[in-house]
Design a protein around this nucleic acid. Structure first.
Lengths: 149, 149
DNA sequence: TAATTTTGCATCGTGAACGATATAAATTAA
DNA sequence: TTAATTTATATCGTTCACGATGCAAAATTA
């Protein structure tokens, strides 16, 4: 194999890495007014879908380690959007729940998915092309997720 | 619009974010023995393709800010893979060049692209599907890159 | 030429990510 | 029941990623 393959442009991973960074950047105009970061927004999505979950469930849904999620939740608690209470059945668990403020934020964040979709489609050309990536990304994620374990 | 759209699963961005993280993780078995992180490996690729470049050129090729790249380069210099010297024509510039050690590493890293490609294809099912994402990712990156400016 | 603006890079602060390690509670095995 | 193991979460250290700011050199303008 020649050194050709080493060329940056040939790499899929660099594109994923870059696309992910830039896409997260595209959330800024919508998340900054709410004071949320993108990972924090993901946590809010998880909690808006189902309130009162242990740290582990949140981490699992986001495919993140608890040592990433714990400090994230600590900052979010400090911001007043969530609370963390010891589990009753299993006292090792910390049950994360939305505060009043966290529940209300849902209304303000309601429009974000359409905004983002519009921005991405505008930038990438067509919605179909973007949609076509989803099953491939899912397979990739599923495969790599297993590999980690 | 219903709250449905807020659901995590509907989001492309989450998949990009996750796929990028996991793909970077897939580099670990190959980069750890060399002592490189993935962003550092990207810098090496840039320098292996063309030695002696100012910080700005490297940052530009990686679509990163200089305030990300500068500390990255400082750590790489400390590790002994690169040197940073003041530019002769423009003394504001810092010309980054490979050390002997950095040049030699190229040989050890030679096989990484094929290994990664194999891993990704194994995980995602088919190479074609992965390849099909590239032009879409490129359009997305190009579009979002403009938006930032 | 002197003053202003721009450019290239560095520094600082904050928030992820994550490997390694710690700790207490729960579970299982002896 | 006691001991060993597993589980849920937290803490620590390192490395990105990036907004904000600083600074000196270069380019531009007056």
């Amino acid at each position: 194999m020649a050194y050709e393959q080493l060329k940056l442009e040939n790499q899929v991973c660099f594109r994923l890495y870059t696309a992910a960074r830039l896409t997260m950047g595209a959330y800024h105009p919508y998340l900054d007014p709410l004071g949320l970061t993108y990972p924090q927004y993901l946590v809010m999505l998880v909690l808006w879908e189902q309130d009162k979950q242990p740290v582990n469930d949140i981490a699992h849904k986001l495919l993140l380690e608890t040592n990433t999620v714990t400090p994230l939740l600590q900052r979010m608690e400090k911001a007043g959007w969530i609370k963390r209470k010891k589990g009753k059945e299993d006292s090792r668990q910390r049950i994360v729940s939305l505060t009043e403020k966290g529940v209300e934020m849902r209304e303000q964040a309601k429009h974000i998915p359409e905004c983002l979709s519009a921005d991405i489609i505008k930038n990438a050309g067509s919605a179909e092309e973007i949609m076509q990536m989803i099953p491939t990304l899912d397979k990739l994620i599923e495969g790599l997720k297993q590999t980690e374990k």
